[in-house]
Simulated scan of single mutants.
Amino acid sequence: MSLFKRVRGVVLFLILAPAIMPAEDKPAADKPNTEKSNPDVIVFKNGDQLTGTLVRGVGDSIIFKSDIVGEVTIPLSKIKELRSNGSFAVLKKDTPATRTNTQTGMVTVDDHTVTLMHPMGQVETVPVSNVAYIIDQSVYDRELEKKAGPLYGWAGTVTGGASFVQSTQHGGTFTAGVKLVRTIPSVPYLQTRNRTIFDLSEAYGKLTTPVIPQTTPPTPDSVVKTSIFHTDVERDQYVSKKFYYLGTLAFDHNFSSGLDLQQIYGAGVGWTPVLDAKQQLDVKGDIHYEKQQFEDSTSNLNLIGASIGEAYKRTLPRSMIFTQTLQFLPAFNEPKAYSANFSTGLAMPVFKKLGMSIAASDSFLNNPSPGFKKNTFQFITGVTYTLP
Rank of each mutant, 00 (worst) to 15 (best):
A176G: 15
V109H: 01
H170V: 03
L76D: 04
N101Y: 02
G86Q: 11
T175K: 11
S138A: 03
D141S: 09
G105W: 07
L180R: 08
P75H: 07
V181S: 03
F88L: 12
Q122M: 13
R83M: 02
E71S: 09
G172F: 04
T73C: 01
I134P: 01
K78I: 15
K65L: 06
S87I: 14
F198A: 15
P185A: 05
N85F: 14
Q191Y: 00
S167Q: 15
H118S: 12
A148N: 07
E81S: 12
A89D: 02
G86W: 12
G156N: 15
A89M: 06
H170I: 02
I79D: 05
L144R: 01
N85C: 09
D110E: 13
H170S: 11
Y140F: 13
D110C: 06
V107S: 10
Q137P: 06
V109Q: 03
I184S: 12
L91N: 04
V128F: 07
G161I: 02
Q191V: 00
I184W: 14
Q103L: 13
S167D: 15
D141Y: 03
V69H: 08
T108I: 10
R99N: 10
P127D: 11
T175W: 10
Y204L: 09
V165P: 01
Y140A: 05
V181Y: 02
Y152A: 06
Y189T: 08
V69G: 02
G205H: 03
E124H: 09
A162K: 05
V72W: 00
D94W: 02
Y133K: 14
I79T: 10
V187N: 03
V187P: 01
G121C: 00
I79C: 05
P119H: 10
G177F: 02
V123N: 12
E124V: 11
T209R: 08
V109L: 04
V72A: 03
V114R: 00
T209W: 00
V178G: 09
R195S: 06
T183F: 01
E145S: 13
R99A: 13
V126H: 03
I134C: 05
E71A: 07
S84E: 05
R83F: 00
S77H: 00
Q166G: 05
T73D: 07
T125P: 04
S129T: 06
H112M: 08
A148Y: 07
N130L: 12
G177M: 11
T98S: 08
S163V: 09
G156I: 15
S201K: 08
E143L: 12
L91W: 05
G149Y: 03
V126G: 02
T113M: 11
I68C: 04
H112P: 00
V165D: 02
E81N: 12
I79N: 04
T159F: 02
L91F: 10
P96H: 09
N130G: 02
L151N: 12
L190Y: 01
T95I: 09
L207T: 06
V165G: 00
R142P: 00
F174E: 05
T168V: 15
E145W: 07
T100K: 06
G86D: 10
I79L: 06
N101L: 04
D199P: 08
S66D: 07
T168S: 15
Q137W: 10
I68D: 12
P127S: 12
V72Q: 02
R193Q: 11
D111Y: 15
P96T: 06
T159G: 08
V158D: 05
G171N: 08
T192F: 03
T125A: 10
V139Q: 11
Y189V: 04
